[in-house]
């Protein structure tokens, strides 16, 4: 599979998104290499990340919408049972961690949990299947060199995706923080603790960092875990080009890592959800 390309090229290829954006010379188009994608700067979009993210999010909503339309309070059918199980689990968590009343939190927690889980789940698809397929299609249909078709299928290994969600949550934290505590109360929380009003600069620095670190750590934790996980899958996949012995070892390694990774993807989705609930709960509470 690595073919005539080197290992580092293979890894590089797997870590590059399918990017559509503004080339430095001013015209818009797809990037044909990692170099070009980087040169596009901010005015570019990762088509593969967005595609999979929206596809998986829609899949989640479609399934849950179907279940919620046929919801009955009688004996639940299979799908309803499954959906209820997840909804109950999420609702339990929200009720346990979130003390204020806000109808947004529970549905948001559900969306985050299932959506992030589905996005993480793509990590378990063998790393070459879909990118290779995309390469073949790209070559056959669009006549592009397959080595220039980039297709990452795990949206959560793209920091844009995790930061995108974390910043949306951060915006909600700020919105509810100011709405519940008032602008004065919100500012007071940043400025007058932990050292009282005479330590205001130190307070602002400390509290400001702690505030900013919340979305950053939220996004980086998910990204880091999934990125590392995918990297290991890619490294294991490299073994397949090393002959039958290495290939067999790689098969076992991949199986083992995939089984272990099931735990990670579920755990990371859960952590993302719980931290969102906790951060928003903090935004709803008046501490002092």
């Amino acid at each position: 599979m690595a073919g005539e390309i080197t290992s580092s090229e293979y890894i590089q290829h797997h870590l590059t998104n399918w990017t559509y954006g503004k080339h430095p010379d001013g015209h818009w188009g797809f990037a044909h290499s990692a170099q070009e994608a980087t040169e596009m700067g901010f005015w570019a979009i990762h088509v593969d990340s967005m595609l999979w993210s929206i596809f998986l999010g829609s899949l989640f909503l479609l399934i849950f919408r179907k279940a919620s339309k046929n919801m009955t309070s009688g004996v639940p059918s299979g799908l309803q049972n499954f959906v209820e199980w997840i909804v109950d689990f999420v609702n339990e968590n929200v009720r346990g961690s979130f003390s204020a009343k806000n109808d947004l939190i529970a549905p948001m927690a559900l969306t985050i949990f299932v959506w992030v889980f589905l996005m993480n789940l793509m990590d378990l698809v063998p790393v070459d299947w879909i990118p290779h397929l995309a390469g073949i299609i790209g070559h056959a249909v669009f006549g592009v060199d397959p080595h220039h078709v980039y297709f990452k299928i795990v949206p959560t290994t793209d920091p844009n995706i995790t930061f995108g969600m974390a910043f949306a949550i951060f915006a909600l934290m700020l919105y509810y923080g100011i709405k519940i505590k008032g602008p004065g109360g919100f500012f007071g929380e940043l400025a007058f603790q932990p050292f009282g009003k005479w330590g205001m600069p130190a307070n602002l620095l400390l509290e400001g960092i702690s505030l900013i670190s919340k979305p950053v750590s939220l996004a980086l934790r998910l990204f880091g875990n999934l990125y590392a996980g995918e990297m290991i899958f890619i490294l294991i996949a490299l073994l397949y080009s090393g002959g039958i012995v290495w290939g067999t070892i790689g098969g076992f390694l991949q199986l083992g890592w995939a089984i272990f990774h099931i735990l990670i993807i579920l755990l990371q989705a859960f952590i993302f959800m719980v931290l969102t609930i906790v951060y928003l709960d903090m935004a709803h509470q008046e501490h002092h």
């Binding site: 998104n17 990017t19 954006g21 994608a37 980087t38 596009m40 700067g41 901010f42 005015w43 570019a44 979009i45 990762h46 990340s49 967005m50 993210s53 929206i54 999010g57 989640f60 909503l61 969306t111 959506w115 949206p155 793209d158 920091p159 844009n160 995706i161 930061f163 995108g164 969600m165 910043f167 949306a168």
Partner: peptide
């Protein structure tokens, strides 16, 4: 690279 995907995902998140 950090780019427009960030905003795209934020919008998708809000919509979902």
């Amino acid at each position: 690279n950090i780019n427009l995907t960030l905003i795209g995902q934020s919008i998708a998140f809000a919509v979902f």
